[in-house]
């Protein structure tokens, strides 16, 4: 007999879920800046969520506290290394980032809008791609490895100056087809375990998968410092890890697939404040 035990199953699951809901708490940075960590769902996910919630709410108290204070947040050490790079003259043009942009504070509007359509290049670009474009074409310097140490430190710096500003990526116009491609990937059940991003982060956030408390898989906190590997982790490396865990062949960091996926996932968090470098376990 093929039985659909939906009612039974739902009842059992509701009973075991209670303790795992996201924590009710407010992220106040350094005792002064309140960060928007939950907000009414943006257009892209209005049909599936009432509210979008930062991964911060799904972490333990100590982890949350660590992110609330720049002196305790290990990710800020890497943002400072990023600031050294910002001022380092490199390449044939004898320039640093600072030669063109002056203070990193001038970049506060940048992180929230990426990935973004670039009219001249005719493509959607991630922040990493834009950074490498500046290095190659304005500095005459070598590109950085997509998720290498220098690149992650630079993205940590650029996220840090945008903290408290809402993610706001455009998904219409010329970016739309890339966004659609990302959405398709988000709902594809990859690997031998046949799990999609949505299976874990849309349908089961708040529940436990083994020792892990599933969040909505938002990317407003990237790059994130993970206590597990004690380093800053780039968003494409997180995508890679999640796909690998479905026993699938992953995509490469910087691949067209991950660029599209990043745009789509970012749009699911439109309205949440940038909070990178965040702290996670």
């Amino acid at each position: 007999m093929k039985r659909l035990t939906a009612a039974l199953t739902a009842g059992l699951m509701a009973a075991s879920m209670v303790s795992a809901d996201p924590v009710d708490d407010t992220l106040v940075l350094n005792g002064e800046t309140t960060i928007v960590t939950r907000i009414k769902a943006p257009e892209a996910v209005a049909d599936v969520f009432d509210e979008v919630i930062s991964g911060w709410h799904f972490r333990e108290e100590e982890t949350r506290a660590m992110q609330a204070d720049d002196f305790d947040n290990p990710g800020m050490i890497f943002a400072e290394l990023g600031e050294d790079l910002w001022n380092t003259v490199e390449g044939s043009e004898d320039k640093s980032c600072a030669s063109c942009h002056e203070s990193p504070d001038n970049m506060a509007e940048v992180r929230p809008g990426y990935p973004k359509w670039n009219e001249d290049a005719g493509e959607v670009r991630t922040l990493e791609m834009q950074i490498n474009d500046c290095r190659e074409n304005r500095m005459g310097a070598e590109k950085w490895k997509y998720t290498g140490g220098d690149m992650v430190n630079m993205t940590a710096l650029l996220a840090s100056v945008s903290r408290g500003r809402p993610v706001n990526v455009a998904i219409d116009g010329p970016a739309q087809s890339t966004w659609e491609a990302g959405k398709e990937l988000y709902y594809t059940r990859f690997g031998q375990l046949e799990l999609s991003c949505a299976n874990c982060h849309e349908e089961n956030n708040g529940r436990m998968i083994r020792a892990d408390h599933l969040s909505q898989g938002q990317i407003n906190g990237f790059p994130v410092y993970r206590l597990k590997n004690a380093k800053l982790n780039a968003v494409h490396d997180r995508f890679k890890g999640c796909i690998r865990d479905t026993r699938a062949e992953t995509f490469e960091a910087g691949s067209p697939e991950f660029i599209a996926l990043e745009l789509y996932v970012a749009s699911r968090g439109n309205g949440l404040d940038v909070e990178g470098p965040a702290v996670r376990n």
Binding site: L4, G191, I243
Partner: peptide, 27 residues
């Protein structure tokens, strides 16, 4: 038994999208 179940199929070898070599991330 359960349409579209999230539960993996433990005794099946075909019909996967980008099946990997265990947890290596390789094909």
């Amino acid at each position: 038994m359960f349409d579209e179940s999230m539960m993996p199929s433990f005794y099946r070898v075909d019909g996967f999208t980008r099946p990997g070599n265990e947890y290596t991330g390789e094909a």
